[in-house]
Design a protein around this nucleic acid. Structure first.
Lengths: 207, 207
DNA sequence: GCGCGATCATGACGCTGCGTCAAGTTTTGC
DNA sequence: GCAAAACTTGACGCAGCGTCATGATCGCGC
């Protein structure tokens, strides 16, 4: 009876299986409803209705609407993390690192917006919430920069500020890019790359 | 009977006076309650209670909790605007413009956090909402940059992206600055200034 | 296969906050 | 001084909230 290589679930027991299914059902429903009504306007009850489950069940999985949203966002960030990781690992120069990361980021956001459709209305809050995954990304970038600085590949800069500034810049420029048609992903990534590289060198040369 | 040079109100009629008083009372109460409970946790009823007014009265002034928050934030941005304006107007070089604006911003946020106390818990959402005042700030900065570019004071850059990137960077670095003790406002402003100036020159030299 | 204990889904329940609106009060204009 | 306009008030019906007693389902040991 067990479907071999089932898409979602490698869970052993039947119990754990439905548990994962329910969780996913709630997340899927939330995605739909958020997309339809917007985050503020949707009630937990709206999500529950779209789920088919009983109201009590919801609370076995999430404590609030915010918790569901964070889980959704965490999903996104978790999918992005390996892409970023790959870019950081395979880059030899600082320039390559910065440009590769930005490109990966802009492409990812663009894909999330088009393909995944739903969440589009609210997705520009990406990375705003302070989930563990989000701060993991921050740490990862900062460590990569610290390493680059340590081995002389990057100018001596304040890695903490640089990371924060880069993320902030990327987020805002990304949002701005979506207001232009057609969406010039390469252009936006290039702009940020130059700003950050030029800024890093200039900062270091004064310091 | 009329108090000459009354603090808040130059309103002529008695009607308009209590109207302004009520509005202010709601804003003050909201400030207190948001600071005490946090934005998410406070209900409209909490604000109303802290106000002493009847529940129906609230809805004569604001439509939702979010509307009150935006009004509060708008107040902040509105107070900041002339400070920024002054910096932009009196600066002759591009460097002066960038550095002055950043310094004004960091100082303003720092003061809002300490002195005004309340809102501290949630104030780091500053500039995140898309109010008219917020986008007015954006326009003002962008226009200043376009002007500087036009008269050759600044390198030829994409003013739209540059503005967005600068604001994003400033916001994130600012948030980061508050995690360090003591708060080094000058240092954070200097960092951003160098990043942005260096970035602008580098971007322009490639183009 | 049986049965017991653990685990989880269910949905009705009491409660709280929501926005409205008819009634009452105050202000304005004449 | 009076009537219309403007505004406040708080009770009301309604909707969403989170809980919890009940019952169904599953895992596990025999």
């Amino acid at each position: 009876m067990s479907d071999p290589a089932s898409e979602i679930l490698q869970a052993s027991g039947r119990r754990a299986q439905t548990k994962a299914l329910n969780r996913q059902a709630i997340l899927d429903a939330a995605r739909r409803v958020f997309a339809r009504l917007g985050f503020e306007a949707t009630s937990i009850r709206d999500i529950i209705r779209d789920t088919g489950l009983a109201s009590g069940t919801f609370y076995n999985y999430f404590q609030s609407k915010e918790a569901v949203f964070e889980a959704l966002e965490d999903d996104g960030v978790r999918r992005f993390r390996p892409l970023l990781r790959a870019r950081l690992d395979k880059s030899t120069t600082f320039e390559e690192m910065v440009h590769g990361s930005l490109l990966a980021y802009f492409r990812f956001v663009a894909e999330e917006h088009s393909e995944a459709g739903p969440l589009a209305g609210i997705a520009l809050r990406h990375g705003t919430a302070d989930t563990p995954e989000t701060s993991a990304i921050f740490q990862e970038v900062r460590t990569a920069i610290e390493t680059a600085v340590a081995r002389g590949a990057a100018p001596p800069i304040d890695a903490d500020y640089f990371t924060a500034g880069a993320i902030g810049m990327a987020r805002e420029v990304c949002a701005r890019m979506f207001l232009r048609l057609p969406h010039d992903i390469e252009g936006a990534a290039d702009f940020c790359t130059r700003m950050l590289l030029g800024g890093a060198h200039y900062t270091a040369s004064r310091g």
